[in-house]
């Protein structure tokens, strides 16, 4: 499925934010992630489902992905 990360399309099979964060190599701290404009705090990543068409905004120091 496709999701957008900072307005760029990303192909993923991750079913939740924790798995997606691993795919994107996101650091465990110093980061703000919003899924469809809702900021998801780190402990909630595993419980945050990711679906086709979701829009993610990631604010973090070292940009990649």
């Amino acid at each position: 499925m496709k999701v957008t990360v900072n307005n760029r399309e990303v192909e993923t099979t991750a079913s939740n934010l924790l798995l997606l964060s691993q795919q994107l190599n996101l650091p465990p701290a110093g980061i703000a992630v919003a899924v469809n404009n809702r900021i998801i705090s780190r402990p909630q990543w595993e419980n945050c489902p990711i679906a086709h068409g979701d829009s993610l905004i990631i604010i973090k120091a070292v940009c990649g992905g």
Partner: peptide, 16 residues
Amino acid sequence: PIGKAREILGEKAIIG
């Protein structure tokens, strides 16, 4: 300036 703050705070800091 951003660059100077980056030098001080390092790569792991979010700088807006």
